[in-house]
Design a protein around this nucleic acid. Sequence first.
DNA 1: CGAAGGCTTGATAGACCTCAAACACAGTGG
DNA 2: CCACTGTGTTTGAGGTCTATCAAGCCTTCG
Lengths: 230, 230
Amino acid sequence: MPDPDQLPPERDRLLRKLTSIADLSDADRQALLGLPLRVEALPADTDIVRDGDRPSESCLVLDGFVCRYKLLPDGRRQIMSFHTPGDIPDLQSLHLGVMDHSVGTLVTTKVAFIPHQSLNDLTRRYPGIAAAFWRDTLIDAAIFREWMIGLGRRSAYERIAHLLCEMALRFRAVGLTEDHSYKMPVTQAELGDALGLSTVHVNRTLQELRGAGLISLKGATVQVLDWGGF
Amino acid sequence: MPDPDQLPPERDRLLRKLTSIADLSDADRQALLGLPLRVEALPADTDIVRDGDRPSESCLVLDGFVCRYKLLPDGRRQIMSFHTPGDIPDLQSLHLGVMDHSVGTLVTTKVAFIPHQSLNDLTRRYPGIAAAFWRDTLIDAAIFREWMIGLGRRSAYERIAHLLCEMALRFRAVGLTEDHSYKMPVTQAELGDALGLSTVHVNRTLQELRGAGLISLKGATVQVLDWGGF
DNA sequence: CGAAGGCTTGATAGACCTCAAACACAGTGG
DNA sequence: CCACTGTGTTTGAGGTCTATCAAGCCTTCG
């Protein structure tokens, strides 16, 4: 069994992520370690894949912060999800040829590209890995549903509170928090695009949350003060 | 190779659905036909699975119309998806033990329950079936994303127009349309719950669409008159 | 230091919601 | 056969939430 501490970090990410969501056999792990990776560093606000593309590889986030989004013809934008290191945001392109949305970086980000063919071989030979990937897309869909209820049925105030808590939890899971606070890697405009709100309204609601004592904002650093208060 | 015309209809549904989204081998098909089904007829507005349940079987829709939805503590409701015959709306419970939402009927509906154990055996033994199921959840997630952009970034007018078109296409796919019109199986209140709107506003917007000559409504029958006009 | 991007503020407008009541229609029971 | 009931649809009035437009301000960075 491979010792995580001896792995190059780009190998470690995927392994950690998948073992966190499914049981993998030793053979599964070995197979994952053999995957060919092409590592690339990307500046902020760069598209990794675009709506309509037919990629031949999928990208694993190694470091940084990435989102999936869709654009309306007139420029309106909806961000559908955020992704932290270990995620493969466009894994779906393996089975669904054409992208129905774009994937882009929000900050400087390091990604590893994995050829579809290698991934396909893997899933055919290792049912455990196929199951893990399937499970991952099921979790993905569950998060989409959670966002849907926010977009459809929650007020701006509730939506923002929710998202700030979600991000706090996710950053804690990846070890990026420091005494219950974290650096928000997205602008208020991007928050608005994720929550279906205008930038102005995001700003005002953020002030309301601060005023109510639920959060504190120092620069880009967010601290959730009251986890029950909404 | 089994001839679809000789199958009992409840067997046929699933086979048709899966072959429409993936390539299945003859062995795959045979295996699917061996699945144990427990058929049940349900009246309208009945929950099949509830948020928080840990089902031990999944349900295949044979006839009727079903939706997935989530409830907020104060009663606000968001419908996340509609499902036509051939769909397995709670397939996810196979891998994600606890339901994060409910599944309920909108009209009188016939469903078939399939034990998780049988489904698990199948996916372990037939990678083609596992792939088909995975692909199905990927399509599911893509539809969620499409709805998200509606909820987040489209006006009530656009949302309703979009949904009516989507339903027209889906009913045509299942052969339930008659000269470009179909019987809408949902109330205006349910439409509102799916689109994040109030019943009253759905009603007024529907009138607007009719006034603009885009659709016609006779009772529960909807006809899309102008496919480009929005 | 200047420029650029992000944040903040004010004023105004519009989309959408809530409440409340009337209406239409189908199914039920006397 | 006809009131009766229940569910779904329609209308009106008023209010709230959120968007838009247009500045000004603050940081960061070359």
